[in-house]
């Protein structure tokens, strides 16, 4: 205390070393956090500046033209954008019931806890498989196995544009399923964590007024955990949008547009991975533009995610 003479007690001076460590810790933390921000900004600026030429040439039409032709030097990313959005959305729609269902199974005492533990571990282990391995598995095991089923889908529902072509091997449908496998662990583990955090007293309240297990889960426990689950789902969507390796291996990398998910398709990330190696000039700029679009889409998903989580969080 500066005017400590009149005070009845004296405060101990902190040693210089302790203050230095204190201060130092703060600065290190600030530096760490800034590095992340600087790197992100740097990436954003590089991609933006790289894509300026293409942006100037095509403007927003780039998003709606499906022709991508390095020979005539004309570029439009609609095929890849369509592929990215459709594969991710379809994957998320399939993965939500699977993932949330698994999470409910793990957190509720329907089965003995060993069975639930083993299942939980299995799902977590899915996340440990490298995506290139999943891609190989998709090419050699899953796709041949799926083809008769997809064929059936085509014969029965061929009048729907999404199933209008015969499956010929690699294509969007197997890519969707491989995405489901890749995002399942995210949805499951985040949903499980949010379900576990629902207070026990809420469950008791539900059971105490004669709710059955399913009423309690659907009407009380899931709504109480919904913000966490929604957050997990959107995180998974972000992952699906950007997933490259396995998708590139199985999607077929076709530059010809087709509505059908049974036909070979393309995603932005798969296209980038395939073409950057031998691209030059205007093609590089167009690829940068496509990368920029992907970044904006992912950013948008994240913003919506935050908003939904905030909107849905319940106070209990």
């Amino acid at each position: 205390m500066s005017n400590g003479n009149s005070a009845k007690f004296a405060l101990r001076e902190r040693p210089a070393a302790e203050r230095f460590v204190d201060e130092g810790f703060r600065n290190v933390a600030v530096a760490m956090a800034s590095i992340v921000a600087v790197v992100l900004l740097g990436i954003f600026l590089v991609i933006l500046s790289g894509s300026l030429e293409s942006m100037g040439r095509y403007g927003l039409n780039f998003l709606f033209i499906s022709e991508w032709n390095p020979v005539t030097d004309k570029y439009g990313a609609f095929t890849a954008i369509y592929g990215t959005l459709v594969s991710s959305l379809a994957a998320i729609i399939i993965a939500i019931p699977l993932g949330v269902g698994t999470a409910i199974f793990i957190t509720e005492d329907i089965f003995p806890s060993t069975a639930r533990y083993i299942l939980g571990m299995t799902v977590e282990l899915l996340a440990a498989i490298p995506s290139v391995v999943l891609g190989l598995w998709a090419i050699f095991v899953m796709e041949p196995f799926l083809r008769p089923i997809l064929n059936e889908l085509h014969t029965k529902f061929g009048w729907i544009p999404f199933f209008s072509t015969a499956p010929i091997g690699p294509g969007m449908a197997p890519a969707i399923l491989i995405l489901v496998i890749m995002i399942l662990p995210i949805i499951t583990s985040i949903s499980r964590d949010s379900l576990i955090q629902v207070p026990q007293r809420l469950r008791e309240a539900a059971y105490g007024i004669g709710a059955t297990r399913w009423t309690a889960i659907l009407k009380i426990i899931l709504p109480a955990a919904i913000s966490g689950i929604a957050g997990g789902v959107l995180l998974a969507l972000g992952r699906a949008l950007g997933e490259t390796m396995a998708v590139t291996m199985i999607i077929g990398n076709s530059l010809n547009f087709s509505w059908s998910i049974l036909a070979p398709g393309n995603t932005i990330s798969a296209m980038l991975a395939n073409q950057f190696g031998e691209a030059d000039g205007s093609q590089v700029s167009s690829l940068m533009y496509a990368a920029f679009v992907l970044m904006i889409i992912t950013l948008g998903v994240n913003i919506i995610a935050q908003w939904i989580v905030k909107k849905l969080s319940l106070k209990y």
Partner: peptide, 19 residues
């Protein structure tokens, strides 16, 4: 047990209204 709890209701130690 669900029917039992409908006949025999319970109020808990901590107030636990639904959100």
């Amino acid at each position: 047990p669900v029917e039992v709890r409908r006949k025999i209701g319970m109020v808990f130690q901590q107030p636990n209204p639904f959100p």
